[in-house]
Write a protein that binds this DNA or RNA. Structure first.
Length: 474
RNA sequence: GGCGCUGUAGCCAAGUGGUCUAAGGCGAAGGUCUGCAAAACCUUUAUUCGUCGGUUCGAAUCCGACCGGCGCCUCCA
């Protein structure tokens, strides 16, 4: 049974999909005014892991991630760089797709853009206006928070307490300081769209209500995003959607913890800001993913180069086993033994960890236990049948490859191929074996060191020499 | 001021009433194997879970106080 911690109820709840044949999941995507940072990457990767696990469980998932391409920050950037907003947003949309591809994030089914849903947005605001949840002041339309009686139910905030917080900027036009913009009147030089209230653009929250409803329906299963979106963004989405539709907006709210640098929130102003793009220049996507997977999604994550380096090392174990499997599977051995090994035990443990609110750190521990125990079996037995290697592979295919995305067997599939490069390596390896036989260790070491410089590592075992090519992804 | 999260080995990090004399990764030490390496395996590395009390047959896990760290309430994943 899969249980999920729901921010709305502050409890772990059994996951009951509206329609088990197709789970509806919406994740808040980026505002495309810059390359996304490593904190964004954490949310995107953990949402990806959740999505992959739901698919592992046999669900089909309709996964929607919005791209916010109308926004103050985009306008600001366009003024700074003296380029059209459309140019800025398109540029960073492209960069976004490049980065998530590099991070091995499965693409969403739909990436709706705000600029392509203006009709839906305008229609939603009109509905809110007709139901008296919205008011128009000189072309600026606001949501009247006082009309929505459940306001604050997600974030646990109360309207009167928020007002006394006094950190809210007073806007003369608003009836209540907490009221938020649904439609902003265009200023000179800003991009605008036509509407019943004049030329303008949508407020920040309305696009998500409009687009999620359009693509997933008035009520859908899962809505996920970073912790800081709980208030006001998600709170306001609920207010808009439920006021307009008279239906519960979302069944399960999932929120991701922050990524901190030196125990502090990463932010541009603190100067501890890293884009995913920059991190990817130095560390593999798999190491980034494993670093995140080894911390629970809801808690804070202390990010550092040490963390990535330690994940990179941990990954070696997994890769070494994968290489070995692929080598063995390239030989024909169907007559060997099949050692006793309870694959089901590991799979059951993996599932029960992930079923418990996606406890990926525990599930990753199951994979590492599996690797250790399999390596022991491989060390203790000779002449193992390919069938056994196939079973190992299929466990890893389901877990490390399928759910976590930290391994890709296709990286190793050409390892023992008949390609020229491999033939040459084999030739040198055989030359070295001859040298070793003649106790000419100076020559054998020279060959090994020479290959090492080219990124090829040799490993001797009792009866043969295998090799490993680094930088396979590059 | 309001709301919420958090403090577990050298580092990262699960576990939230008994199977915990506490998983997993990194690091460190020793060993097996090897011409030497590498890889892999084995052993060791927290009698203890911020501090002090309480509840309980039993607590890292519940309650209270205290000390420390962080976040949200304003754009933010």
């Amino acid at each position: 049974m899969l249980s999920i911690y729901n921010t709305l109820t502050k409890r772990k709840e059994e996951f009951k999909p509206i329609n088990p044949a197709s789970i509806s999941m919406y994740v808040c995507g980026p505002t495309v005014y810059d390359y996304f940072h490593i904190g964004n990457a954490r949310s995107f990767i953990m949402a990806d892991v959740i999505r992959r696990y739901l698919e592992f469980k046999g669900f089909s998932v309709k996964y929607v991630m919005n791209l916010t391409d109308v926004d103050d920050k985009i306008i600001k950037k366009s003024l700074q760089e003296k380029k059209e907003t459309k140019f800025i947003s398109e540029n960073y949309v492209e960069a976004f797709f490049e980065d998530i591809h590099k991070l091995k994030i499965k693409p969403a089914n739909i990436y709706p853009k705000a600029t392509e849903h203006m009709d839906d947005i305008v229609k939603l605001i009109e509905e809110l206006e007709a139901k008296h949840f919205a008011y128009n002041i000189n072309g600026n339309v606001f949501y009247d928070v006082s009309k929505f009686k459940d306001y604050g139910k997600l974030s646990g905030k109360k309207i009167n307490e928020l007002e006394s917080g006094s950190r809210i900027e007073i806007n003369e036009e608003k009836k209540n300081p907490l009221d938020f913009s649904l439609w902003k009147k265009a200023k000179i030089g800003e991009p605008y769209w036509n509407s019943p209230w004049g030329n303008g653009r949508p407020g920040w929250h309305i696009e998500c209500s409009a687009m999620s409803c359009k693509h997933l329906g008035k009520t859908f299963d899962i809505h996920a995003g970073g912790n800081d979106l709980i208030f006001p963004h998600h709170e306001n989405e609920i207010a808009q959607s439920e006021a307009a539709n008279d239906k519960k907006f979302v069944n399960y709210w999932i929120h991701f913890g922050f990524l901190n640098i030196n125990e502090e929130k990463m932010s541009k102003s603190l100067g501890n800001f890293f884009t995913a793009r920059d991190i990817l220049k130095k560390y593999s996507a798999e190491a980034i993913r494993l670093s995140f997977i080894q911390t629970h999604y809801a808690g804070p994550l202390n990010f550092s180069e040490d963390l990535l380096a330690s994940s990179e090392k941990g990954l070696e174990k997994l890769k070494n086993l994968a290489v070995r499997i692929m080598e063995e599977l390239n030989t024909q051995n169907n007559s060997g033994i099949i050692p006793a090994f309870d694959f089901q035990y590991y799979e059951d443990n993996f599932i029960s960890a992930m079923d418990d609110n996606f406890n990926s750190p525990q599930a990753s521990a199951v994979i590492f236990d599996f690797i250790r125990d399999i390596n022991r079996i491989l060390a203790e037995n000779n002449n193992i049948s390919n069938e056994f290697y196939q079973l190992i592979k299929s466990f890893l295919e389901k877990t490390a490859v399928g759910v976590f995305g930290i391994l890709d067997f296709s990286d190793y599939s050409t390892l023992n191929s008949v390609m020229l490069e491999d033939s040459l390596i084999k030739f040198l390896v055989n030359l070295r074996i001859e040298a070793k036989r003649e106790k000419n260790f100076a020559l054998s070491d020279k060959i090994r060191d020479g290959l090492k410089e080219l990124g090829i590592t040799l490993q001797d075992s009792k009866d043969k020499t295998s090799y490993k090519k680094y930088n396979l992804n590059i």
